[in-house]
């Protein structure tokens, strides 16, 4: 999209950057703030700086580490919808190919599973993710327990009509294109 700017991002997020008075209550409650290159207060500061800070915001790792827990928005004394800003920043990052490596791997595998079967395939998601991301042994010590107690299936499971889901996913993508 041509108008990927801070102004358009904030319009889509339905947030006025000047509503934030930088008190930092959001970052104080954020479970991920310690690991973020930009914490929630700094993200709002970027939006106030406008176009100059646009690239900094959408290239940050923070927007991919946000768990979407909504603590920031709930505790904000001025009701600033920070998760909405982060969500729109992610869409812009995707558009510009700036998506965090591991997030891209995880989401791509998740959505491919969904497209093929209509369901999330927990076991396959974890297994393929480990191979592609090279975190081969992540969570693998739980596998014997899961198999013994039939907590995961060794074969993928399908919903009644996976085609409906893949059609919905394809059509969803067309809306984005139409906006351009």
């Amino acid at each position: 999209m041509s108008n990927r700017t801070m102004a358009s991002l904030m319009r889509r997020a339905k947030v006025d950057p000047m509503d934030c008075y930088q008190c930092g209550k959001c970052a104080a409650g954020c479970p991920m703030a310690n690991s973020m290159d930009l914490n929630s207060r700094q993200i709002m500061h970027c939006t106030q700086l406008g176009e100059a800070a646009y690239n900094k915001l959408i290239s940050s790792e923070a927007i991919w580490l946000c768990t979407g827990c909504n603590v920031c928005h709930e505790r904000c004394p001025h009701d600033v919808d920070i998760p909405s800003v982060i969500e729109q920043a992610r869409y812009d990052a995707i558009e510009k190919g700036k998506i965090r490596r591991k997030s891209k791997i995880f989401n791509d595998i998740f959505l491919t599973n969904l497209k093929l079967t209509g369901k999330s395939q927990e076991a396959f998601l974890a297994l393929i993710y480990n191979m592609v991301s090279l975190d081969i042994f992540q969570d693998m010590n739980s596998v014997p327990h899961m198999l013994r107690h039939k907590l995961v299936s060794v074969l993928p499971e399908f919903i009644k009509n996976p085609k409906e889901v893949s059609n919905t996913m394809e059509k969803s993508k067309e809306w984005g294109k139409a906006e351009k």
Partner: peptide
């Protein structure tokens, strides 16, 4: 993943 990657989806 869906709402992270595509708003309409």
């Amino acid at each position: 993943s869906a709402h992270v990657m595509n708003e309409v989806m």
